[in-house]
């Protein structure tokens, strides 16, 4: 028996919004520690990793490990039927071929349940090594979304360059060139408005705008986003899911031949 109840159901709605453009199907791996998802996009350019810890749920029961393969487009359609303040419960029997989503209004006066077929997905897991990144940049998630949206008008790629002076995002194309520089904030009223840079060595990498734009669908999840970069390794774009976990996107850089 698997059952996970989340009073703050809108977090789950937001997680799905942040996945559905990148992935069409994926497996949710459930264990007594929580729920995890790891999947590559169809082109194998990026990888998404989601963690929802058991202690972040208001009730969590997972008697035996199970992997629930889901069509994320369908899951997203179902979650869109939940109101933002609904309590969401996910339920499945052991070795079941379907999953049930229950949405309760806060006053318990409306209860809806939706059943969805599970899929048998043969998904390969990739081992992500622990990495000490050369540069770790934290900035407001909305600012990052805006930068990527603005620079996407210029070309297909964004160059992210981090030095001790700050971080520079650049794009070039037929209409011209765009550069956006962010310096580390000296002082801010709110922590979530800060730009912080931890840098061991300068690093410059080039990434596809198309993917960065899809990652920014997770902006609704968290006030801040963390970008981790090292030379010639994938970029990590991380959004926290409240205090219960994270959505991490890994993006392979573009490489000069």
């Amino acid at each position: 028996m698997f059952e996970a109840r989340l009073v703050q159901g809108n977090l789950l709605k937001k997680v799905l919004e942040s996945l559905k453009d990148l992935l069409t199907e994926a497996s949710w791996d459930c264990a007594d520690t929580g729920i995890q998802l790891q999947a590559m996009d169809n082109s194998h350019v990026s990888l998404v990793s989601v963690q929802l810890r058991a202690d972040g749920f208001d009730k969590f029961r997972c008697d035996r490990q199970l992997s629930m393969g889901m069509n994320l487009t369908s899951m997203s359609k179902i979650l869109r039927c939940a109101a933002n303040d609904d309590i969401i419960t996910i339920k499945a029997q052991d070795q079941a071929d379907n999953v049930t989503f229950v949405f309760e209004s806060p006053n318990q006066e409306k209860v809806a349940d939706y059943e969805m077929k599970l899929m048998n997905l043969d998904q390969e897991h990739l081992g992500i090594p622990e990495t000490d990144y050369a540069a770790v940049i934290k900035l407001p998630a909305a600012e990052f979304q805006r930068i990527i949206k603005d620079l996407s008008q210029f070309g297909e790629s964004v160059v992210i360059s981090c030095t001790k002076e700050g971080v520079k995002f650049s794009a070039a194309g037929d209409i011209g060139v765009g550069n956006i520089k962010l310096a580390q904030t000296a002082s801010v009223d709110k922590e979530e408005e800060a730009v912080t840079i931890e840098m061991q060595e300068p690093v410059t990498l080039t990434f596809a705008c198309r993917y960065l734009n899809m990652f920014t669908k997770a902006t609704c999840l968290a006030p801040q986003v963390t970008l981790s970069m090292s030379p010639e390794v994938p970029l990590v774009v991380e959004y926290k899911i409240g205090d219960m976990g994270h959505v991490r996107y890994y993006l392979a850089p573009k490489i000069e031949d």
Partner: peptide
């Protein structure tokens, strides 16, 4: 010429 890398060239299959 610049080419897009693949994520599975960076991470090992488990």
């Amino acid at each position: 010429k610049i080419t897009q890398g693949r994520i599975d060239n960076f991470f090992q299959r488990e």
